[in-house]
Nucleic acid binder design. Structure first.
Length: 276
DNA sequence: CACTCTACCTGTGCGC
DNA sequence: TGCGCACAGGTAGAGT
């Protein structure tokens, strides 16, 4: 389940010292499941991509933004935007390698490689736009780099349960279900806590946990959880560990539902005193 | 505004 | 063995 660290890892795998799609020209596109494209007809999508060259890669929250330029046209800049949702995989492969059962799109490059989008659940989405803002609207500041003052001023404007707030991409961008549980565990905060009950110390602790958990996970190329395509090395503390001993106190890790999401916590370490 | 529910999908793993 | 079903989770949109 790609969240901010996993998406960051995808970008780094497409742009590093041993290989980069930057400078590669698109010579052909195969759409194996047409509905993956949100905002264009398949023919328009393919013809608009062909002949363009990748010039930039960046991440906004969980969105992957691939900048393109067509040297034969004016205006020439466009953006291929990819959201992996839950099971999407975006990776480089050799053009001659056969597509998989769940391959939805293949972008063939001029160096014998291709950019492949696989997605078993078909939740992932792809856009081709001239203006990134037309897709990415209302996204909050990036969770991996938000400063304390900004975080504090945003959180004090809300009266909500903390876990759904962390998952709200318009509040801060990049956190998903796994890292929300990890962040709240590290901060010692119960996921049902009401944000308007937080002391300034609690807010400071929460902000520090967001930064430290995401920074460590990015450094380790994402979470080490089965089912994620590319095994990272970040070891989770509570996610998926229900019934197992808490790594801090040894009590049994609990699983509850919060906002319809499976939620893991240690009742001993994550104080319930702020819960209504 | 806060929250819940549903839809979108399909692979997995459970109980019977 | 195989069937049915709950479950997994990111996001949008409708409803309470």
């Amino acid at each position: 389940m790609p969240e901010l660290p996993e998406v960051e890892s995808v970008i780094r795998s497409l742009d590093n010292s041993s290989y980069s799609i930057k400078g590669r020209k698109i010579i052909n596109v195969a759409l194996l499941w047409k509905s993956v494209i949100v905002n264009r007809s398949p023919d328009d999508f393919i013809s608009s991509l062909e002949g363009t060259t990748f010039v930039s890669l960046k991440r906004c929250g969980k969105y992957i933004i691939l900048g393109l330029r067509n040297l034969d046209k004016t205006p020439s800049d466009s953006f291929l935007i990819v959201h992996l949702r839950m099971t999407g995989l975006l990776f480089r492969a050799e053009s001659l390698s056969p597509p998989g059962l769940h391959t939805r799109m293949v972008v063939f490059l001029d160096d014998g490689n291709c950019l492949r989008f696989d997605d078993s659940r078909k939740f992932g989405k792809v856009w081709l736009v001239d203006d990134v803002k037309s897709v990415i609207t209302g996204l909050g500041p990036d969770a991996s780099s938000i400063d304390f003052a900004g975080f504090e001023s945003r959180i004090t404007g809300h009266r909500r349960q903390i876990k759904p707030l962390l998952l709200d991409q318009s509040f801060i961008a990049g956190i998903g279900n796994i890292y929300a549980d990890e962040i709240l565990f590290r901060a010692g905060i119960h996921p049902l806590s009401q944000t308007d009950s937080f002391s300034s110390d609690t807010i400071r602790q929460l902000h520090a946990s967001i930064i430290s958990v995401l920074t460590e996970a990015v450094e380790k190329n994402g979470a080490n959880i089965k089912d994620t395509f590319k095994e990272g090395n970040f070891i989770v503390s509570v996610y998926g560990r229900e019934g197992k001993p808490c790594i801090k106190c040894g009590a049994s890790v609990s699983k509850i539902r919060v906002a319809q999401r499976g939620t893991h916590l240690c009742n001993n370490c994550q104080s319930s005193k702020d819960v209504l």
